[in-house]
């Protein structure tokens, strides 16, 4: 136990701090994912329109997200808004904005792909039944799109949780930052604690993500049965 540094975890509030950090990471990524899915669906559908302006704007947006490291985006939203507009965003809110900005682009692209994969005849048979455009999207296109999106969005959630460690750059203390703090605070007394601590964090992340992937495979099975 000592060699693994687990005893370090049991000192004081260390374990609670770690769980707290994990909750911060999960809160940021889950809230961002929910917003990303909602905005991503709208953005993805908009992208299927053959309008030049829409195409150019969405292209630029997608490219910005693709090229820009998330850390730069965090700096822009957290510090940039203060520089330009004097806004003082809460660091966690800034993180959610950045992750949603990123997630919406990714979801949007996935949605666009899924929507354009739905055969033209599905729209036509819906129109032929007298459904209007909005009803067609609501009852026919979006439900089918969502089913196709489940495995892809789980992938996005996992990547988001992984990327939350970046938010330490704007002062948000999440699980990995807490881990570093604990390792550093004990570097004299327990120089080898790092391995055990990272292992613990890994297990905690796994426990947190496990239900998400269970839910995903349950939905996948339910919808393909």
């Amino acid at each position: 136990m000592q060699a693994l540094g687990i005893d370090v975890l049991l000192k004081g509030n260390n374990f609670i701090r770690l769980i707290d950090g994990l909750c911060t990471a999960l809160r940021i990524s889950l809230v961002s994912v929910i917003f990303s899915i909602v905005f991503g669906i709208v953005f993805g559908i908009v992208m299927t329109y053959k309008n030049t302006v829409i195409r150019v704007v969405s292209r630029v947006y997608l490219e910005i997200v693709r090229i820009m490291p998330q850390m730069v985006l965090l700096f822009i939203v957290f510090f940039g808004t203060t520089r330009m507009f004097g806004l003082n965003l809460d660091a966690e809110l800034a993180s959610i904005i950045v992750f949603t900005f990123w997630g919406t682009a990714e979801m949007g692209d996935l949605v666009r792909g899924a929507v354009s994969n739905i055969p033209k005849h599905q729209y036509e048979s819906s129109y032929a039944l007298g459904l209007n455009k909005a009803q067609t999207y609501f009852y026919i296109v979006i439900p089918q799109t969502l089913r196709r999106l489940i495995p892809l969005s789980i992938n996005l959630v996992t990547r988001m949780i992984k990327t939350t460690s970046l938010v330490m750059m704007i002062g948000v203390v999440e699980a990995l930052k807490v881990t570093q703090q604990i390792i550093e605070a004990n570097r004299m007394t327990a120089p080898n604690a790092a391995f055990g601590l990272y292992l613990t964090v890994f297990i905690l992340y796994f426990l947190a993500c496990w239900p998400i992937s269970l839910l995903a495979s349950y939905l996948e099975k339910k919808w393909s049965a």
């Binding site: 000192k11 004081g12 701090r17 203390v173 930052k177 703090q181 604990i182 390792i183 550093e184 605070a185």
Partner: peptide
């Protein structure tokens, strides 16, 4: 918050 002994967080 993680540069012992200059600035760090204790248990």
């Amino acid at each position: 918050s993680d540069k012992n002994p200059f600035g760090y967080v204790d248990e």
